[in-house]
Design a protein around this nucleic acid. Structure first.
Lengths: 329, 329
DNA sequence: CCTGTTTGTGTAAACGTGTACACAGAATAT
DNA sequence: ATATTCTGTGTACACGTTTACACAAACAGG
């Protein structure tokens, strides 16, 4: 049970070779006789030897650890992407370390802690961390920022997301259905990502001589979507609500139906953003500005691989959003 | 940007001390003059020095890394607990490495990889990994198994979950409402956790002279809940479905309502398990056998701390479930 | 003033790898 | 036949810390 792990030197003695040869047996492309290798591997299996990755990292200057900075784990909008990314990383023998923190100061502290572990790559999903903070903390690593905005430089790679065309499609449909009074339900007060998403819709409205009549601020949760929608609908006579994410949209839909007896899309149109799996569930069937999660994570992996191989290529990739049409708008 | 990280020896030269003193400046309880420490810390800040955690781990034999073996990240039932645990770990300066793999062989391979990193603790959430596998792979670490069943030994700690009383309450209510024909919708074919959960309800039924009339197998997803419920309701005349988790219960409810026009709880009673936040959303309002996530994670942290401090105490903790009453049963 | 303790610091070894270098022997070329 | 390459292995050091030990200086009590 609590047996100590065997080291390469001890195994060397057992196999009658030097510790260097042990190391070679575990390195695929190294000069070693195949008979020796087989013998070593067999003895290694017998004694349960595995090279110590910590020692190897120290020597190699490569830890094969990847830090993922995220807002939350439970939040479905991020979770689907996290899941995909974790799988892709693991297929490349990279281990993900999750950094997830509600408080901003704590989050920076946490990032500093992770940087101490010499992570090879950093993926920042969180819009709460500025590019500058990430670069300062991981000055040795070149972080990958998921930014919704192309801000790559020589020290940061970025993936940006363009939803303007999809937003235009959605607005066209809703306006075509005769709706004219729009509200925007933000996910956060401060985030510029939220501002950008809002702009996609605001521009589409402006093109048609319209504008948002009202705005409210939630926190990306169901409860905040519910509460803010109630207040919004009591305050003004809007007939369409664009929400910062899908979960809030579900909350808003529930509020409209339950508290005010309004149905979608007849009485009111409700639109989400993200395109999470739950949006497609029969009980939700949400119309939503949908991100292609696979393409998105493909892009992240692509950037990581370039970074790994020190390949110079474009450091910014843009993903275009599409629409998932449901029965709420 | 790609500047190399400064080492303790270099900093020592800059501060006019030896590298040992640098190390002491960063260790809270070590003999060092406070003037020296202040000077070192100030120089360190100036040059952006941080001790290399990899090197420290190699020396200390403690990595402060924790491996979390989970089934999925996106799955809400686990995600809430993962989120809580990650926060608690980070507050203790422990970094979580997520191991998440659909395929069983891959999962074992992944666990071997993580064990290579000398993780200090292992938390196995997954019911797909046997206790024996975990012990074999992490023979140096004493894994913590979340097991639903008290199987602690000197090499494994465990947290078990008892839902029998809550299941009895639920069955009492449903039978009291006049339902008699029960079906169980499992989450998996093979998992013994699923079997255990089913037993809680089966026992409660047996106490009242009843038994499950039908059984179906899904995979814990919404879609499988929907599909299996449709088949179940076409096949037999059940008027109550107990589901393996909340997400499947929502799928089953949608199927009953949409495909067969049956409403809860009048026509059919539907019960979930887990007590995820979504169960409380207005559009769901699920009756569910609910786990106290906070108590649960408290228990995990408790075991980790005991393990950390080498305190001998009971290695098994049991959490009792309660009922969340909704409008579906 | 001498002995004994405390305080602060440096020296050196250890943690477990990977790899540059050296070198012996085998294989190949001339 | 010798000269040259190639193959397989060992030796020794580096990676960046922490810490046991040694030691000088400061300080206490007699």
């Amino acid at each position: 049970m609590n047996k100590k792990r065997i080291t390469s030197k001890e195994l060397a003695k057992l196999a009658g070779v030097s510790s260097a040869t042990i190391s070679r047996a575990f390195s695929p492309d190294s000069r070693i006789g195949s008979a020796t290798r087989d013998r070593i591997l067999s003895v290694a299996r017998e004694y349960g030897y595995q090279p110590n990755a910590i020692a190897r990292s120290l020597n190699n200057q490569r830890s094969r650890l990847v830090a993922l900075v995220v807002n939350a784990i439970g939040n479905p909008c991020e979770a689907e992407e996290q899941q995909l990314l974790v799988h892709r990383l693991q297929a490349r023998q990279l281990l993900p370390i999750i950094l997830c923190c509600a408080d901003h100061a704590d989050r920076l502290q946490l990032m500093r802690l992770a940087s101490t572990y010499q992570v090879d790559h950093v993926v920042v999903f969180s819009d709460m961390v500025s590019m500058q903070d990430a670069v300062d903390i991981f000055h040795t690593t070149k972080p990958i920022i998921v930014s919704f905005e192309p801000l790559a430089s020589d020290s940061v790679s970025s993936i940006s997301i363009d939803g303007s065309a999809a937003a235009d499609e959605i607005i066209a449909k809703i306006v075509g259905d005769g709706k004219t009074r729009f509200a925007y339900l933000s996910g956060t007060q401060s985030s510029w990502i939220d501002k950008l998403r809002r702009t996609w819709f605001a521009d589409a409205l402006a093109k048609r001589g319209l504008a948002f009549e009202a705005q409210a601020f939630g926190d990306y949760t169901y409860d905040s979507g519910f509460k803010e929608a109630v207040m919004l609908l009591h305050r003004s006579k809007v007939d369409a609500i664009i929400c910062g994410n899908d979960v809030m949209a579900i909350g808003a839909r529930d509020a409209a139906r339950r508290i005010l007896g309004k149905n979608t899309p007849g009485d009111i149109a409700i639109v989400g953003q993200d395109g999470i799996a739950m949006a497609g569930w029969d009980c939700n069937d949400l119309t939503t500005l949908s991100l292609d999660h696979v393409a998105f994570i493909d892009a992240v992996v692509e950037l990581i691989e370039r970074h790994d191989a020190d390949i110079d290529g474009p450091h910014s990739i843009t993903i275009t959003c599409s629409v998932r049409w449901g029965s709420t708008a």
